[in-house]
Design a protein around this nucleic acid. Structure first.
Length: 311
DNA sequence: AAGACGAAAGTGGTTGA
DNA sequence: TCAACAACTTTCGTCTT
């Protein structure tokens, strides 16, 4: 199932696995989900609903889609003017004393505007980067807006100094994903942006610390539906995975460990138990962790939970 | 031949003195 | 600021199916 096919049958979407037309759109995660089969058909859908609500016809008219909505992802490309320091007008004539106070105020404002215009220049490069990476990943608008907002704050606090704009933008996007509960792995952002996972991670930490953002590690469950669909696992396996994760959480295996590793290991166990086995290698590939990590986690889990596994 | 296993050394971040 | 530390990765040889 390619993205193109999904978009072509936009009106009536049919699940490729079970033929069901009961498809729900989960816009917050940008996923199309078949309700019968539980399969994530497409994880790059675009939210086409209006972002606002209209309460009467007057508002509806005002808020209808004419022109583009206000957005953080478009910056003002206004040209900036510079006011010279000499007390002369454009003809070289001296400015009378009574006007000098006014000139002083103008210069003061000019300074402020100039500072913000270097920011605008930065944003001219960064915002398209954010847009490009997030469209490549099919992220919903809310995430882009959040990313743009985080990036603006980061620039204001001079946190982007000494970093490439591209990598700071990717880091802002990663932070936005997590804030919006649409977790994507560093690996996925790295692939979509031609940057290394390490670099994005480094910049991400700097931004989070600098802005004092409170980031909780995402629960392992958040990754399951996406990984399952990439591995073409059934609904049963997915349910089983969630059960295993829940139990692992109770057994206190989870804290301090990478949630992705937990999700991947649980997925491996569930795939074996449900007779839909995927190799550690396959899962490691999809989840972006190594087989070794999956092995270590799954040894721990089956050790604590008395699960018998026959290979 | 592919997958699973485990040992050992390396990496990058956190923590606590 | 630095060393100890935990989690994870990389690499590689061996065993199993």
């Amino acid at each position: 199932m390619t993205k193109k096919e999904t978009q072509k049958v936009e009106e009536i979407i049919v699940c490729p696995e079970c033929g069901s037309t009961h498809i729900s759109r989960d816009y917050t995660r940008a996923e199309l989900i078949c309700e019968g089969y539980g399969l994530v058909i497409d994880d790059g859908i675009i939210d086409q609903r209006p972002e606002w609500r209209a309460f009467d016809s007057d508002q509806r008219e005002k808020r209808s889609r004419v022109g583009s909505p206000m957005t953080y992802t478009i910056h003002d490309k206004g040209l900036s003017t510079v006011i010279g320091f000499k007390n002369t007008d454009s003809y070289g004539k001296s400015i009378p004393n009574r006007n000098r106070a006014q000139m002083y105020r103008l210069r003061k404002w000019q300074k402020k505007i100039r500072i913000s215009s270097t920011m605008e220049k930065n944003l001219t490069n960064a915002l398209p980067s954010i847009n490009r990476i997030s469209s490549a990943m099919g992220l919903p608008r809310t995430v882009r807006e959040t990313a743009a907002m985080i990036y603006r704050k980061a620039v204001l606090k001079k946190l982007t100094r000494g970093r490439t704009i591209e990598s700071a933008a990717a880091a802002a996007l990663y932070a936005a994903c997590r804030q919006c509960d649409v977790p994507r792995t560093l690996e996925e952002i790295a692939n979509a942006s031609n940057l290394s996972r390490k670099e994005i991670g480094r910049n991400y930490r700097a931004i989070v610390r600098g802005l004092g953002l409170k980031m909780m590690p995402p629960p392992p469950q958040e990754y399951v539906s996406r990984f399952c669909s990439k591995l073409k696992l059934s609904n049963d396996a997915q349910t089983k995975t969630l059960e295993i994760i829940k139990e692992a959480t109770n057994q206190e295996i989870v804290s301090g460990r990478s949630p992705i590793g937990i999700a991947a290991a649980s997925l491996y166990i569930a795939s074996v138990l449900c007779g839909e086995r995927r190799s550690q290698c396959e899962i490691a590939d999809v989840a972006g962790v190594t087989e070794v990590t999956i092995r270590n986690r799954y040894k721990e889990i089956i050790g604590k939970m008395n699960i018998e596994i026959t290979l």
